[in-house]
Simulated assay, not measured.
Amino acid sequence: MNSREENLKAMDRLLTIMDELREQCPWDRKQTLESLRHLTIEEVYELGDAILDSDLEEVKKELGDVLLHIVFYAKIGSETSAFDIGDIANAICDKLIARHPHIYGDVKVADEEDVKRNWENLKLKEGKKSVLEGVPRSLPALVKANRIQDKVAGVGFDWEEPSQVWEKLQEELREFYEEVKRGDSDKMEAEFGDVLFSMINYARFLKINPENALERTNKKFINRFRYLEEKAAASQRALRDMSLEEMDVYWNEAKEFFR
């Protein structure tokens, strides 16, 4: 591992390269905060994929891409004297110190839940009007629901036992099924949303990350379906020409390989 001195030298090297690219490269010179936004989101998703794949070499590379974007934003900000990399680092340092009075002050905490409650209460004292202000509007709905529930739980708005959440989920399922029987598509959608929200809440109580769980199932399905396609191709048949019974044979084989 690198020493602190070597790490600081590497960061200085990156900052120097960013200066040079911004001055000399036509593409880098043209970029703005807005033009980089969608690329940054893409890089974060790629980092997420690498983490889920437990590919540490790829995690290192994707972290580098994300770090480059942070340095890029800092460089753009410095050009109008809005902020620079030092301002960014100092701002997060100040926030971390302020949000951890149990480390940098005299507040006592018993466990992780105490820390989370203190975190949300401190944000309200800093001037936030709602604990939900910190939930980005553009988050995917599944992730957003999980963050909403986590944040309101931090100020005590939560169920007491997992069994209560399970009962609520059963209630939402019954309400959804009633609307399915009535056939009102708008009400079905609304009730289905309630079911999903309750499922995510139940997962939170069971310490399951719903995003990770769903992505795990997505990958499992993709692997099994690709196996099915490969087997069909090997037998020189198109899937559209196979019966469900025939496809099911290969699907059951795939389940043995991809669990």
Rank of each mutant, 00 (worst) to 15 (best):
R204N: 08
K128D: 11
R4F: 07
A234I: 00
R237L: 09
K60F: 11
D248C: 02
H102C: 09
R182W: 00
S138W: 13
D186R: 11
S138V: 13
K151L: 12
D106R: 14
Q164C: 07
L39E: 04
A238C: 03
D65I: 08
D186E: 14
K168S: 14
K61D: 14
E191T: 04
I222S: 07
G193H: 08
I208M: 06
M247C: 10
E171T: 11
G183Q: 08
N252A: 05
R182E: 14
G105A: 14
L67T: 11
E256L: 08
A232D: 02
W166C: 02
V59N: 03
A98N: 08
V59F: 03
M188P: 01
S78G: 12
Y104Q: 01
E161R: 15
G127C: 09
R174M: 04
Y202S: 08
A110S: 11
I92C: 05
H100W: 01
L14I: 11
A98W: 08
M199R: 02
Y45K: 13
R22G: 00
R240A: 06
A89R: 14
L228R: 07
E253G: 02
N121C: 12
I41F: 06
E245Y: 00
D150Y: 13
D19C: 10
I85L: 15
F221A: 09
L68T: 08
R4K: 08
L228Y: 05
R147Q: 13
L21N: 01
P210C: 12
D12W: 09
F83A: 10
G193S: 09
E178S: 05
F192P: 00
A153G: 11
A203F: 13
A74H: 01
G86T: 14
R37A: 05
K231Y: 00
F176E: 04
F72S: 14
D114T: 09
Y227S: 01
K220Q: 15
V195T: 03
A98F: 12
C25N: 15
F257K: 13
K144R: 15
A153T: 11
L142G: 09
I51S: 03
